[in-house]
Design a protein around this nucleic acid. Structure first.
Lengths: 229, 229, 229, 229
DNA sequence: CATGAATGAGGATTCATTCAT
DNA sequence: AATGAATGAATCCTCATTCAT
């Protein structure tokens, strides 16, 4: 098991001593749930599964969360918060829009390959959630997307990124990044850092050997051409 | 509702006459199911939902499919068959490995933006399936992936594609393409064909204005660095 | 497969020629059903199973029988008729009550080991049937039981059978005979006729080497001591 | 209703208090189920029937048993355990093989006429069970059969039982005993103990007044002549 | 007659959630 | 605070039986 999972190993311990802070137990529930949700899917993970893994009882979960949806929202929040925090750090490195975008992707990919909460954000289907919870999650998600688009726009403005449909690019990057959870094995031969770089560069630079014949000239107002979400 | 969905409107008609080509009814079930699966997810779509949409009763579905899994497998098969068929056509256009890869992506993106069955292949989680059905589906899916990798390899060999970790590229492309279903709106301003071209070119050529500073130099034996599946 | 089953093989043929007599088809249904009922139980045999084995369609069965219950009653009737017929023959052999009883058992055991319909009578649970059908079947069954009891009574009267509770003896014999279907293998080493004799003698003569120390002295009015059925 | 069933009347009480020995409730489920299984058959008894009789809801049953099969296996186990326990006691009475066999039958008959669980063992069709549960049950059943055969063999060896095909005798006895559940009425005129003695003696000593003309001389290797199970 | 299609009435099982203690 | 017990609402699937053609 990769070491990024040992949060979960600690999770059980949090419940073994009743004196521990409730905050810790909340986290324990969250990281256990995140792990199971990723492994088996939200629907197929029952409250009982989560409770069993923590060696507590089902109703105990309801002390910390009001519902299963609430737990999922918790996972999303944690993941998005992590990404956003790291992103702030990355931004201090001033540079061209292209370099900022590259840095953004790197942080994003890194978070996902490193943290289960990060993966939750990209792998879990928020359609599972009740409407209220769903829009809360989407609001959070949009912050990442907006952040990415701003950097791309900056790159286009300063001439380091080709003129292109920002939304399409953001979606393409998002899709490629989000898929990582489905196949990436942190114990593979490629080191995490090498993987992060390679994957980022593929997206930013493409695979074509020659410079692209012509710059992409799609409508600049592509925004309307895709769903609002 | 987008016009590409009006197949489904026809679906109900297929059941209005008791005597009617069973093949037609089977297809009607399949396209209705595909639509609902995509909209609400496989688990959250009940057999009753499907039956209600077709204005038939639940057990009637079991005339055409042995189980819910069987219906999902049917959707996958249809989608994969479509993609593979179109891919064959695209291949006749001989060209460099790069151009073949580009053509491949175009066909792939096009299928997904055009057919709900195509979207099923990329959006539906085959983890929902029983083991037997799951491996059947994975076998089919692998054919697409293999096909893509062969073209990339060809491009690397003929020097039109940068030396790179083929698996990573295939995954990045796959992820970006698969995500389309989640946000693409066929009624958006951008025409389908414009979208297909733009999206494909982003992936192939990247967004960086300058030629990449250095070619991607990841380990050439990257295969082991990612999960086998 | 034992040869006593080849009636069933013929069953399918009966339906291959539409010109054949409907009576033959009825029989074909009956013997196929008997076979399946014995093999899997009445409840677990579906009308579809029967139809499939005969290579006809389900509704066709309803041409010959009004319901599944009706088929089961048919099986019972055939079996009971066979037993009763053979019993009449056996009775012509005049003899003591003991010998008549022994002959009766022999015929009974023989019928059961030889005919699937015979086995139906003893192995199938008439509780499965709707009330009307059930009492019809029970009426038929009682005729066998009555026949056996008469012979035992005759033996007691003529001093060849110990004074005993006739009902208990009849039930003991019935139980032992009825169980045959559950374990007897017509292809076993013991020939059918040897088996019939051995089994009958065990019941009639017991297994004790010495003559029983004292005659059985149960209440002579034991009849009332057991359920009426 | 016969008084041997009033365990069941107590069954409902077991569920009247939320806090109560779970063992008690498990037993309540089991005895209620046993009763219904015997009365209507396994298949025709629904989980809802059982729940209704206990005045609880269907899913509550799943607290105590994982499945309907599990309940049936529970009934079998209880019955077989009872028989085996009583058998051990009976065996302490040393004696000839014949007397041991007689004692065995007495205990067996007694258990069946006294306990519904005993009847389950003999009356319920284990073909209803899933393969795993079925072989578990059969393993248990075989222990009783083996026990009986050992005693018969002992009797043959010490000359108190006629040389005979042990398997046939065991089957005949088993069949006769198993049938008891189908017709015995514990409230009949005959007392249980009188019934037990009378029934046992019929089987052991036969009904023939005269000593049997010739000892049964079936093939001594009759084992092969019947199915293995 | 025969048949493919359709259905109504269950039945086992799962699970998020809430009580009673 | 924590738990064992209980529940209601689904959900998939089966099957005897009946139509429409």
């Amino acid at each position: 098991m990769p070491k990024r999972f040992n949060l979960r190993e600690e999770a059980q311990k949090a419940f073994q001593n009743r004196k521990r802070k409730p905050e810790l137990k909340r986290d324990a529930v969250l990281s256990t749930a995140a792990h199971l949700f990723l492994k088996h899917g939200y629907r197929r993970t029952s409250m009982e599964d989560i409770a069993d893994h923590l060696e507590i009882t089902k109703p105990a979960l309801y002390h910390y969360f009001t519902s299963k949806d609430d737990i999922l929202v918790g996972c999303y929040s944690q993941g998005i918060a992590s990404i956003l925090t790291r992103l702030d750090d990355a931004d201090k490195a001033t540079g061209s829009g292209l370099e900022k975008t590259r840095a953004f992707l790197r942080v994003w990919v890194e978070t996902i390959t490193t943290m289960e909460f990060g993966q939750c954000v990209v792998s879990l289907d928020d359609n599972e959630l009740a409407p209220a919870a769903r829009s809360e999650v989407r609001r959070l998600k949009r912050r990442i997307d907006r952040s990415l688009r701003e950097r791309i726009a900056e790159g286009i403005a300063d001439g380091t990124i080709k003129p292109c449909d920002i939304r399409l690019v953001a979606f393409a990057f998002g899709g490629a990044v989000n898929s990582i959870g489905a196949w990436y094995d942190p114990n593979g031969k490629l080191s995490t850092s090498a993987f992060v770089k390679a994957y980022t560069d593929i997206l930013i630079d493409g695979v074509s050997m020659a410079p692209a014949p012509k710059p992409v000239r799609s409508s600049r107002r592509g925004a309307r051409s895709t769903k609002s979400e």
